[in-house]
Nucleic acid binder design. Structure first.
Lengths: 339, 339
DNA sequence: CTCACAGTTGTGACCGTGCACATGCGAGCA
DNA sequence: TGCTCGCATGTGCACGGTCACAACTGTGAG
């Protein structure tokens, strides 16, 4: 019963055409939903496709159309919750729009690694690039290497307004800081992220802005690396002096390490030290105490990001989806200072 | 100075050939490191490539060679730490081997979603598939849809030995269980993962095996969903009876929720309840108390996985990298029961 | 009856690369 | 000198789609 016309190769439109008694072009038209095809013809072609288990060859289509329908994602630390959530959302949104997604990971943040990753993406003739690697250097590289495809980033840089789409990190940081000040804290440290991360810089600026606006004296932020380990060690260092009543940590993981250090020193959160995080990872609600933090909608960010990139690809640069506002989630890790 | 020969199109090997005064085939040979090319010729071609900023067209190459050099990853819950770490490692290993990686996320675990994801991958003519979506159903689908490319999974199923490569989940679970038994616990609950996850099943079996081997009476495991939220609510339920002294949780997140519930009930970990997790996520060392857990090397898993898949692609099915043994990390969340 | 026209289908070239085969050339050998 | 042989390079086609254009059909208006 089964039709076994072609040799060892996968069936092509010409095989389908022969068996359906039409030209290869008619088969192509069926594939592309061309309007003027007789219903009976279309049905016959579709049936043969089914019998042959025909699958269109993407490479051939990309070659003849000059479009790869592929989007590249340049990502650092894609194992972390935030980026990983956004990437998943990006992949789903792109798939729904008929695009394929190809991810390149940054091995490290040096120039060589960035160029290698970009090269890897360009070799696949991606039509657009989403940058989730928020190091400043990546954007320098993007500009210098004269990448000629549109790109979009999830981080607001201040200088890349054409491409940027982001959660308003500054506003989020201000919310967190304001919360601590409103509770009565006046000696507040900021545990920041790595210096070359745009998000880290934005959160730091938000912190400093709010402290300045509220006339609270500020000390220099501590530059961390996002890990719980770092938060723990930084906390131990800070507690040797203990001249503060609150810390705003630039992400939830470092906040967790910080809590660990505080408790290990025989102190209590929030009685002795109030702590605010950033991100609202799913575990934050179950820290002890449950963490007060700033929630970002990573998935929504990924979706809008693809929307923006696709609108760029479509030629119309209008329809900026704008900035997403983060939200302060107050839980048990903050309280008024106890003098 | 700049050579601007071609019109609006990207330069092709023929453009390079014309400017270098050779045939397109010679350019192709330079690209593919053909041995018999005069050094002077090679140098001239390379220089023209540089001037033209020539990039080989992947679609054309894939079309003519019949190989896409692309590997597909089928993944569920790619935002979680374990899978995300493995995916990142897979991408890096594949890139080093000259392959591209394309990830399809499972929207849900129903049949339709699985087929859609597989279809998405097959449409790109991937040469192999890595399955990180550990639902049993996915493998049924793989077999039924007569996927004709090799595939590999990170989870041991017991029935897919040809394709499987995994951390020995059963051994890991036995380590954890044995640790609790050795400490003197006799009333031990198991908080398992979702029923259709192969890993969850393996860990559950490891738990039951060890309990049986040590002659400790067992109660039915509780089926969870991997989230800290679930661990928390399950913990609240369990504590209404409080007929246990230890819990082996199938992952670290649920363990965290569990600790939260225990502490909220006014009890202490490990004094009143000992808890063991699984995975050793980077945060586990900073839980309060620091979590005793079973470490899996996700990155190594990803790397070996690509090695296995590539050896399948190469035709030789030898060289199985074998199973990775997990490691028990003892921290502060376990102690002898206090009667 | 003839012509214009829309709907439907077919023909051949082309996209950029790699392969099979052919060709030119110089060296080694009888 | 003539022949074989290996290196270096060129020629033409195939890969599987899409595009531009041509051709055929039937219908309604002039």
């Amino acid at each position: 019963m089964t039709v076994e016309l072609p040799k060892g190769r996968a069936p092509s439109i010409r095989d389908v055409a022969r068996l359906a008694g039409v030209s290869h072009q008619t088969v192509s038209r069926v594939l592309n939903d061309h309007p003027s095809i007789r219903d009976t013809t279309r049905a016959r072609v579709l049936q043969v496709m089914e019998e042959l288990q025909y699958r269109p060859n993407r490479a051939a289509r990309a070659l003849s159309k000059g479009r790869s329908r592929t989007i590249g994602v340049l990502s650092a630390s894609s194992a972390q919750y935030g980026p990983a959530s956004s990437i998943a959302a990006i992949q789903n949104a792109a798939r729904d729009a008929g695009y394929y997604v190809n991810t390149a990971n940054l091995a490290s943040s040096d120039r060589e690694s960035i160029e290698a990753a970009l090269d890897h993406l360009m070799r696949q003739s991606v039509e657009g690039i989403v940058v989730i690697a928020p190091q400043v250097r990546v954007f320098d590289a993007l500009e210098e290497l004269s990448i000629d495809v549109p790109y979009v980033t999830l981080q607001s840089t201040g200088r890349l307004n054409d491409h940027a789409l982001s959660v308003d990190q500054i506003a989020g940081a201000r919310l967190a800081t304001r919360h601590l000040i409103d509770l009565g804290h006046r000696s507040i440290y900021h545990l920041a992220g790595p210096q070359d991360w745009i998000e880290a810089e934005a959160r730091m600026r938000g912190f400093l802005d709010e402290m300045g606006a509220m006339d609270v004296p500020t000390t220099a932020p501590i530059l961390g690396d996002w890990t719980a380990d770092f938060g723990y060690h930084a906390g131990r260092e800070l507690l040797r002096v203990r001249d503060f009543t609150a810390v705003f940590s630039s992400n939830d993981q470092m906040a967790l390490g910080l809590i660990h250090a505080v408790r290990e020193a025989g102190l209590d959160v929030p009685r002795d030290v109030s702590i605010v995080g950033f991100d609202d990872i799913p575990e934050a609600a179950h820290f002890w105490p449950p963490l007060t933090t700033v929630r970002q909608d990573f998935a929504e960010l990924g979706r809008r990001c693809i929307a923006l990139l696709l609108s760029n690809l479509g030629g119309d640069s209008a329809g900026y989806p704008g900035t997403i506002m983060p939200e302060l989630i107050v839980r048990g890790s903050t309280a008024p200072p106890s003098f």
